[in-house]
Design a binder for these strands. Structure first.
Lengths: 267, 267
DNA sequence: CCCGTTGGTTTATTATATGAACCGATGGTT
DNA sequence: AACCATCGGTTCATATAATAAACCAACGGG
C-alpha cells in the first residue's frame, strides 16, 4: 500500500463516536508504528486535515471545510438534495435521509425530520451505515457490480438486533428480491422498532452511488402509509438524480414506472 | 517533502475558478511527473477525496463531505458562527463573513448577506483571501507570531487595485497600526469600491485563527455607520469566540473593551 | 495521413518511509 | 519517595516505496 493511502486511512479512525484520538491510541488502532503514525499525522496536520488539541489529541482539521465547500460548489450533492429530502420528510411525516457510497462505505450525507410526530427516527451526518442491516445498504448493495458485492459480503458483520441478517445466503436472497422490485425495505434490523424504505441512486453512468430512504417506527410503516412512502421515496430519488445528472438503469426505471403508474405498492 | 504532503498539495490546485483538472494539466501545474501525479491522484481517489468525471478530469470527491460533517460535529465552527454572522449582516445592513487560517492560508468559511440593499458585496465559500489586500488578512496577519508574519510577507503579492499595498514596509506599518487598535480596515484594496472592517478571532490558546469582517461598498463605510459596524463586528467576534471556547489576548481584550465602553470608534 | 495531445503504464534508479530503541515528562500506585 | 507504565515525540540504520524517462494506444484537428 502507498504511503499516502496509509495516511488517509488514519482519517477513517475518526468517527462520531471517537472524534479525538491520541498518538499511541491511533497507532494501536491502525496497527502502524508509532513513529510512522506520528509522521503521517504531522503531514496531515500541515495541510489542515488534522489538528491537535491542547491535550495533544488529534482531531479532524478545518481544511476539510474548505474542501467540502468546494465540493458542493463543483457538484451540489447535499445542497441539491436537501430541499427534496425536506419535502419528502414533510409529505411522509417521517425521517428522510440520503447516503452516498464513498470508498466502499455508505455514508449519511443529509437528512430531514418531519415536525408532526413526537416519536421519530433520529439521524446523524457522517454516520457510516452497515450494508446488511439497513434498507439503504441493501438498496445500494443489490445494484453494485458483482465484484464489489462480493468484497462487501466478505467483510465481517455484526448483529445489531435479533432480526439482523448475518448469513451471506440470506443477504444474497434479499439482494435478488431488492433488485427485482427496485427498492429495499428493512424492519428491526438496524435498531428495534425502526423500519425503513430505501431507493437506490445512480450516477450518469447508471452506476449505483447511494440511496434515499425514509425511516419510521416499525408500527407506522404499514398499509396505506407504507405504500405512500414507497411511492414518494421513488419520486424523491428520481428528482434528486435529475438534479445531479444521474439516471437509473433502464431495468430499474421500468420497475419504478410500473409502481408509480399503478399508484400502488406491490407486495 | 513527504509523499503524503505532495499528494495533499495536489488538492490545493482545485479552486472555485478551476474545479476540474485533467491529469496532464495537473502534472504541469504542480510540477510533478505525470506518472507520479497519476499515482497520487489514484490514491486520493481510492479514499474518495478525489473523483474522476466522465471526461477523465479530476475533481474533489464526496469523502470530504463526511469529513466536514465530522469536523462540524467535533468543533462546530461554521454552524456556531452562522447565526452570529446573520445577525451581524442584518444589524449592519452589509455582508458579514468569517475566515479561518488553514495551513497558512486564509479561507472563507461562512458568510451572510443583508436583505436591505440592492448593492452588496458578494462572497463565496472556500475562497482563499490575500492577506495584504483584505481587512481580514491584515487583522489576522497583525496578530500572528513573528515567524509566520515573516513567511507570509515573503510570499509574492499581486496588486488587485491601484490601492493595494505591495511593499513589505507599508504592510508592516499597517500591521503595527492594526495591532494598536485591535481591528483592521481596508478600502479599495481588494476590489475597487469595496471596503471592509475586520476583527481577529483567537483560539483557547489566544492564538489568532481567523477573522470576522463586514464588507460594504466604500461609500457606505463612513461616519456613524462605520462606527456602528466596528462596534458590532467586535461584539460578533467576541460572541463567536465565546461559542467556540476561544479568547483574545488580554492586550486585545483591553482595546476592545475601551472601544465598546466609550461607544464610539477611535480614529 | 500526420502531428500533437490526451490518460495511462512500465522500468531501473534513487530517495523516502519504516520501526526498534530511546528520551523526558506525566501521573498513578505501592 | 521510589517505582512503573504510559504518554507524545525523536533518532538512525535498514528496507521499501516513490520517482521520472520513455513508451503505449487513443483521440482530434489540420
Amino acid at each position: 500500500m502507498g504511503t499516502t493511502s496509509k495516511a488517509l486511512t488514519l482519517l477513517d479512525y475518526f468517527t462520531r463516536q471517537q472524534h479525538e484520538i491520541g498518538l499511541s491510541d491511533l497507532a494501536r488502532l491502525s496497527g502502524t508504528n508509532k513513529a510512522t503514525c506520528f509522521r503521517l499525522m504531522t503531514e496531515l496536520q500541515d495541510h489542515g486535515l488534522i489538528e491537535q488539541t491542547l491535550a495533544k489529541t488529534y482531531r479532524i482539521g478545518p481544511a476539510v471545510l474548505r474542501l467540502a465547500a468546494l465540493r458542493e460548489a463543483t457538484v451540489p450533492t447535499r445542497d441539491a438534495a436537501m430541499p427534496v429530502l425536506q419535502a419528502l420528510a414533510r409529505a411522509t411525516g417521517e425521517t428522510a435521509h440520503m447516503s452516498h457510497l464513498v470508498a466502499g462505505r455508505l455514508v449519511t450525507l443529509a437528512f430531514a425530520y418531519a415536525p408532526n410526530h413526537a416519536i421519530k427516527v433520529m439521524m446523524e451526518d457522517a454516520d457510516v451505515l452497515p450494508f446488511h442491516a439497513t434498507s439503504s445498504g441493501m438498496a445500494v448493495l443489490a445494484h453494485l457490480p458483482k465484484d464489489q458485492q462480493a468484497s462487501t459480503l466478505a467483510l465481517p458483520r455484526i448483529g445489531l438486533t435479533p432480526n439482523t441478517m448475518l448469513e451471506s445466503g440470506s443477504i444474497q436472497a434479499e439482494m435478488v428480491q431488492v433488485k427485482a422490485v427496485g427498492w429495499a425495505e428493512t424492519a428491526d434490523t438496524f435498531e428495534v422498532d425502526v423500519a425503513s424504505v430505501a431507493v437506490p441512486l445512480f450516477d450518469c453512468n447508471a452506476a449505483c452511488i447511494g440511496a434515499v430512504a425514509v425511516a419510521a417506527p416499525t408500527t407506522r410503516l404499514h398499509g396505506a402509509a407504507r405504500a405512500d412512502i414507497i411511492l414518494r421515496t421513488i419520486k424523491a430519488a428520481t428528482e434528486i438524480m435529475s438534479l445531479q445528472g444521474g439516471a437509473a438503469p433502464v431495468t430499474v426505471q421500468r420497475l419504478w414506472r410500473a409502481i408509480l403508474t399503478q399508484e400502488r405498492a406491490p407486495a
